[in-house]
Nucleic acid binder design. Structure first.
Lengths: 209, 209, 209, 209
DNA sequence: AATGAATGAGGCTTCATTCAT
DNA sequence: CATGAATGAAGCCTCATTCAT
């Protein structure tokens, strides 16, 4: 509120990145033209270049902002009382943030770009590694995670959990608009919740009992 | 067999699609130029247009060929003696085909393209649905799958299994060349095997026993 | 003297022209951007437009200032006791003024610009004509010039002298930084001095004697 | 004639360079747009890029062609019976070639470009050095040049001669269209001829006589 | 069937110029 | 007076596509 106009330059950058996100999600990084972005942002093409060196820099800044958003979510997840609640926070965020909405298409494009742009690959790998390390840590510390099912280590569990989240996000881009995004997320959440319970319900205790 | 070289037009199409796969995986659909593809195929640009209406058609044909390859794998998977062996066949193929190699980058690009090209989306959704239906069926028929862990239905189990596979494939594009593709696949396979065993080892029986 | 700082607007114009000279010499008229000039002058872009209608006007003003500088030199040259000393004053100035330094590159650019900008062409032609007329006059009045060598008229002698000066200036822009500008000027001066002496040593007298 | 279509690629390059010469002379290197050149050549913009990497390459190729043309002239000059005739061949060519016409504006622009583009500077310096060395040699070998007037060495005489030629060429760009190019050349030739005679008429003989 | 020269629309980027503050 | 954010036309260059050979 009072912060809104503290730094107009940052506001502009955000405005441009918001527009870029929409365009990138709609057309892809390389199919979205600078003109598309400027139109979406309601500014002129030239103005983008006052805030970003070039298109590459816009993409990199988007990746960087994505990274910082994910890291924020990780902080919040760390503070949840139980492991499952932490995972739920992460999963919900990883799927779709609220403001600005991280569209699945953007994330898939980010990975596609990462496969050939080392700078982007580093950013994505970095944020992913940090997140996975955080979850590995959460698992290792939580009572449920200590003796997880299937003889899986905390690291492997973390890998599985993130793979599922990514895989579901990837699936999202195929969906026509029949189902609302909220419904889809709810349905997915139900499935992963059962997976998590399965992974972290200490079956050995059941056997012992 | 005897049909293989009867239709030279099909050979040309294959040759072009093989080249396109390499280029698409290396540069992405829209960053790869028709000239790149023609050079990779060792033919002239104009010749591509004798076999494909335009670039879009090449992409669509690639998606279509991908579909048929996956369906072939599904056939093989169906014939495996156990559910876990079926899954292994599918997982290995989904990661990387042998000839021509289906590179992870291509699949990620395919999903990215699907998010904005309805024709491609339909193809990808179709093949995925068919595969998932097939696996759902396999699970429902197999003794291990009937009463799976966590109260998950065969459909949900299938969703999980495919999500994990996709998620791991997506992760692949981030990897630098440190690890060979074979090693990575082996490591992934070990993790998913344990997941599958966990999902399909009927823990309720353990409790009952 | 007392007028020097009476008109701050003139100071601003000078400041801008000084900066423009540096930028024009470094990048050329059309490669130097208004932003370059404003940065070199340590002012904002907009301010330039308070003192000059547009970029063309800056170029024209530069040409005009160059003209007045040359005319000043001509005045000084006129007052020299001998023809050769007059020429030396002119030659030295034509090569490189002291403050602000008239860089050779600027002059070559000025002629290049003159070849397509009639306004600039008029200015340059005007100053050149004035200078040449002045020198023609000097020659005609001086005892050495009256019966110059080779049967050349004062006008032709003047043309030759200016052509040599321009040609040497043009040569300067090719030089790498090996030789200092001062050294180069000295070497050139030596050659032209001998030319002048050759032109104005009345050889006919020698013959007659 | 029969050579005209031996290599159509070379023809295209020549065609483009011819057009570029016209545009460069008319507007300057950086003011001439690629579209201007393509229009002058009667082809599309894209086609230029099949024969030249970029605009810089066109400029460099023009400089290179200029170099080869000058070298040809030097060869012809070498074969002239007397020193003065050699100089006349060189001077006429240095001013304006016939096919394709080397316009003065182009040469002035070339020097302007050389002052900031090292690649062009090297080319121009190279051709100039070769030409001057050639003339120095001609002077040193010729009976007239051995004991030139004014105590000038062959190298200094060569410098003077080239400076005059350059200076006159530079003067050309100022001329309005009143005088035809031929008339101007004739007038200039008359002056330089007298200079050359002055430089190379062995005055010592006069004295001795 | 096959080539690759040719086209031209469209993308990225720069920069002269304006104007609200 | 002075600033510099903002504009948008225009330039360079790429590339999907066509077509004469």
């Amino acid at each position: 509120m009072s912060q809104t106009h503290l730094d107009p330059a940052l506001d502009r950058r955000s405005q441009i990145l918001d527009a870029a996100l929409v365009c990138f999600a709609k057309h892809g990084f390389h199919q979205a033209s600078m003109h598309d972005i400027s139109a979406e942002a309601g500014i002129s093409v030239g103005l983008i270049y006052r805030y970003f060196e070039n298109k590459e820099a816009v993409i990199a800044a988007m990746a960087d902002r994505h990274k910082r958003e994910i890291q924020e979510v990780l902080e919040r997840a760390r503070e949840a009382p139980t492991l499952l609640e932490s995972l739920e926070i992460l999963f919900t965020a990883h799927c779709c943030e609220n403001s600005p909405k991280v569209l699945s298409a953007f994330v898939v494009d980010l990975y596609a770009e990462a496969s050939r742009n080392p700078q982007v690959a580093n950013l994505v790998r970095d944020v992913l590694q940090t997140s996975m390390d955080g979850v590995t840590d959460l698992i290792a510390r939580s009572p449920e995670g200590k003796n997880a099912a299937g003889g899986l280590t905390p690291k492997e569990l973390s890998e599985l959990i993130f793979a599922v989240a990514r895989g579901m996000l990837m699936y999202d881009v195929l969906q026509p608009q029949e189902m609302t995004e909220a419904e889809r997320r709810t349905a997915q959440l139900e499935v992963v919740r059962r997976l998590w319970r399965l992974l972290f319900t200490n079956t050995t205790e059941l056997v012992e009992a």
